[in-house]
Amino acid sequence: MSDAAPIFRLLDVEKVYQIDRGGWSRLGRRPPRQLAALDGIRLTVRAGDSVALVGESGSGKSTLLRVLLGLTESSDGRALYRGDDIETLTDDKRRSFQRDVAMIYQDARASLNPRLKALDLIGEPIRQHALCRESELRDRVAALLARVGMPADTADRYPGQLSGGQVRRVAIARALASEPKVIVADEAVSGLDVSTQAQLLNLLRGLQHEMGLTLMFITHDLAVASYLCRRIAVMYLGRIVETGPTKEVLRHPLHPYTRALLNASPRFFEPIAETLPGEIPSPIDLPPGCRFAGRCPRAAQDCRTHEPPLATTHTKREVACLHPLID
């Protein structure tokens, strides 16, 4: 897939939030603090590709998606959609972007207007892009609902009348309604029952195969990443620390953080593994050196002074670590 046309490209994207200290500091005695949510992100998503974005909460995954979709302006660097800056798409290109790219939100319920029925919610993108006649709308919505495993009478229900798993399904049906080529999903299956999660994962995988969807999938579950996505990008504190083919990365992680994430996932009948110490710090006023140094079991002297860039190793894998796990 490496030669397919890139759909999204992030070129050294940075996103810095100014944190207002509030109160007296507004009077200008101290400058506002800088929160670097994203720092030097480089990422390419090609047509037909599936990319998983993993990392602890607060590592910048959602911010990356928002920049990618043009919902949040980057502070530096460029976000390209099919070669054009996402912020300044021409009307034609923007229309194709709106139709070809669909987002599934982390909080599916919040992403659906509580005062509209499923029919209108799922029908909205269909009407918007004039994909069918009004008289055919109901059938089309029913077909979409069937595709996500819901009965046709769901069309007449409001989101408040559906369970968490059902709301996710409606949100997915809605995302599929505009016949998108790219689906971008933020934690689309987390917090669900194992059975519902498994059903939805199979659904997404089926769509991927049938429709050749490009998938960008945020998850904190490495097993979900490996089930759905060919490529993986591991994030820590606003940076991508390791990226490559999912199976390889998870089989032989190069970055100590990737290995820590792997160890932490529960495994049947194995004792709870030695855990990663501490918690992800806040990305405010970061010290120099590797961001992971404070929790890294391999941290050496140079880690605290040199920031490792995301570099290609001899195995054609990319990792940002001065002492990667190549042994």
Binding site: D193, S195, Q197, L201, D221, Y227, S265
Partner: peptide, 29 residues
Amino acid sequence: RRSLHPYTNALKSCVIELDTETLTPPEGG
């Protein structure tokens, strides 16, 4: 490990692990 109830087996079939190739969750809820 040696579950005998079909529901326990169904729950187990929903568990996703790193090397999971296919999931066969029970239908419905």
